[in-house]
Simulated scan of single mutants.
Amino acid sequence: MSDEPLNTEDEVTDKAIAHAVGEELRRARETKGMSRAQFVKLLPSGIGDRTLLAYEHGLRQMTVLRLVELAEGLGVPASIILGQALERARIHLENLVLRVNLRELIADENRHYRPLRQWAKNRLSQEPDGVVELTPAAVLELAAFLGRTHTELAGYLSKFTPEPVKEDP
């Protein structure tokens, strides 16, 4: 690892990732119907409400171990929290398995991606919840079919990331 200082672009990306991960943690906590105070009482590390608030607002960076602890406390794998955060923030999309709400994609009127609507209709018959997961390789193939770059299509598909479903308390 280099001792070189981060350049401005890296700093912006780091802040964007911290904010996106924090936002996803907050979404997951609220989906579970828990307040910050209720959630921190469940955690073995004994962090306080203000620390959790700083994480959720992206004001404080967390270690991987802390992310794992928070995710486990929410009953969600850390990889899911991180992946959904990056997808919603549209960061490093080319490397992610993208979750796509087919119904929203079908309703979209963007003419450049019109062939995807028929594909989404066909897939909807196989996916009763209306959500598919697309690997980077699948996105790359669809991009080639559409005459788009992987980055362009991943950015477009990330607009259809499904919202978490609230759990009954």
Score class of each variant (00 low, 15 high):
residue 1 M to C: 02
residue 1 M to D: 00
residue 2 S to M: 05
residue 3 D to W: 08
residue 8 T to R: 15
residue 8 T to G: 04
residue 9 E to D: 14
residue 13 T to Y: 00
residue 15 K to N: 12
residue 15 K to D: 05
residue 16 A to Q: 09
residue 16 A to G: 12
residue 18 A to C: 08
residue 20 A to N: 02
residue 20 A to V: 00
residue 21 V to A: 10
residue 24 E to S: 05
residue 31 T to D: 03
residue 31 T to A: 10
residue 33 G to F: 06
residue 33 G to P: 05
residue 36 R to A: 08
residue 38 Q to A: 10
residue 43 L to H: 08
residue 44 P to H: 01
residue 44 P to G: 04
residue 50 R to A: 06
residue 51 T to G: 04
residue 51 T to V: 15
residue 52 L to F: 07
residue 53 L to K: 11
residue 54 A to I: 05
residue 56 E to M: 08
residue 58 G to E: 09
residue 63 T to Y: 07
residue 65 L to C: 01
residue 65 L to P: 09
residue 66 R to I: 09
residue 73 G to V: 11
residue 74 L to W: 01
residue 74 L to K: 03
residue 76 V to T: 11
residue 77 P to C: 07
residue 77 P to H: 08
residue 77 P to I: 01
residue 78 A to F: 07
residue 79 S to H: 00
residue 81 I to V: 15
residue 83 G to H: 00
residue 87 E to K: 02
residue 93 L to C: 07
residue 94 E to V: 14
residue 95 N to G: 08
residue 96 L to R: 07
residue 97 V to F: 03
residue 97 V to K: 11
residue 97 V to R: 08
residue 100 V to T: 05
residue 103 R to S: 12
residue 104 E to M: 13
residue 107 A to D: 14
residue 107 A to E: 14
residue 109 E to V: 03
residue 113 Y to F: 11
residue 113 Y to Q: 05
residue 116 L to Y: 04
residue 117 R to C: 06
residue 118 Q to Y: 02
residue 118 Q to T: 13
residue 120 A to V: 02
residue 123 R to F: 00
residue 137 A to Q: 12
residue 138 A to D: 09
residue 139 V to G: 05
residue 139 V to C: 06
residue 139 V to W: 04
residue 142 L to M: 15
residue 143 A to Q: 13
residue 143 A to Y: 12
residue 145 F to M: 06
residue 146 L to F: 07
residue 146 L to V: 01
residue 148 R to K: 15
residue 154 A to S: 15
residue 156 Y to C: 08
residue 165 V to G: 01
residue 166 K to C: 00
residue 166 K to R: 02
residue 169 P to H: 14
residue 169 P to W: 06
